[in-house]
């Protein structure tokens, strides 16, 4: 009788692992926008507004440039699926590996890179001036931020003696207090690189269509209708994916270590609370900080890389 309950819970946890990030992603985006609005003394739209936006876009007609090739039409589907597939590897509410063969952090980083590769190509595909420059800027930032992401997670991987994300979370939970100094260093490196990867301040302004500064928005300027919906949705999944990595790898306390109902319930609540805290952090950064000039960004990204390299040095 205990066995069957366990199986039901495992299947439930498996389904949750796949659909949780896509379902909660627009909400997280909405919450960040709401916090920002409140911090700026505005009323702000409802936290559910991103769901309505995506739903509306899915039902709209599309306009496609005649110069665009199949790369342009195919990219939104690939981008969405790479983001969801990458999300499967992220430990959300438990440190148990729900699916075998997933969870390697390099695979996660490179799977996300595959989506960006195609998005950058799609940006060039329509032959407009904005798209090309957006692609160029995006690939520049992506190339430099990859090192920061890899190295910050590597710090934890070395402490945990495994590159599997779930096992890293389990191991970091048990680390003695002195080892937390490199973890904090690595987290600051991760935070910088993650803001770059998700196109937030001070790297990119997700709310602007100003031609001189936009990066991500410039690439997707030509998209409309359901393809735009997929891309917008994928971007918000990408954001919540990196937030989850941040809270569950560097601060894994409270993750369920076995599949039982009370543990899962507690860890779900804790996880959502941690994500909410992270939303405050991002909204705070975006309210208190100006976007940096493009050629100042590399300094910041190299800082992220060096912070993580120092953390690796401290982690014996």
């Amino acid at each position: 009788m205990e066995g069957s309950g366990h199986i039901v819970l495992s299947i439930l946890a498996g389904i949750l692992q796949i659909v949780m990030l896509p379902l909660m992603a627009p909400l997280v985006t909405g919450i960040i926008r709401k916090i920002k609005a409140l911090l700026q003394n505005r009323e702000g739209a409802s936290v559910l507004q991103p769901y309505r936006d995506i739903g509306k876009l899915f039902r709209k007609d599309e306009v496609i440039n005649p110069d665009a090739s199949w790369v342009f039409r195919f990219t939104p589907y690939l981008l969405f699926s790479t983001t969801v597939v990458a999300g499967i590897s992220v430990p959300l509410i438990t440190t148990i590996r729900i699916f075998g063969f997933t969870g390697d952090f390099l695979t996660l980083v490179y799977t996300l890179a595959l989506g960006v590769f195609f998005l950058a190509l799609a940006g060039m595909d329509t032959g407009s001036s904005f798209g090309g420059f957006g692609s160029s800027r995006e690939m520049t930032v992506a190339a430099l931020s990859e090192g920061g992401i890899v190295f910050s997670i590597l710090t934890l991987a070395i402490a945990a003696r495994t590159t599997n994300l779930s096992s890293i979370a389990a191991a970091v939970e048990l680390l003695p207090l002195p080892s937390l100094i490199p973890v904090i260093l690595a987290f600051s490196g991760f935070l910088i690189a993650m803001l770059a990867e998700t196109g937030r301040f001070p790297f990119d302004n997700p709310a602007t269509h100003l031609e001189l500064t936009m990066i991500h928005e410039a690439m997707i300027l030509e998209y409309s209708g359901r393809k735009l919906a997929l891309i917008e949705w994928a971007s918000s999944i990408r954001l919540v994916l990196f937030i989850s990595l941040g809270v569950n790898l560097f601060f894994p306390w409270g993750l369920a270590s076995s599949v039982t109902f009370p543990l899962l319930a507690v860890s779900t609540v804790l996880y959502l609370f941690k994500v909410l805290l992270f939303c405050f952090l991002i909204a705070g950064i975006e309210t208190g900080m100006a976007k940096l000039r493009f050629f100042r960004l590399p300094d910041l990204l190299f800082t992220s890389f060096i912070l993580s390299a120092i953390a690796i040095g401290l982690m014996v």
């Binding site: 110069d67 790369v71 590769f117 190509l121 060039m124 595909d125 990859e146």
Partner: peptide, 20 residues
């Protein structure tokens, strides 16, 4: 860094050669 830059380079090659 090399991996990221190689990706940037081939976006450039494929984009300017075959697209638009």
């Amino acid at each position: 860094l090399t991996g990221g830059l190689a990706a940037a380079c081939f976006v450039k090659v494929f984009g300017t050669t075959f697209l638009a």
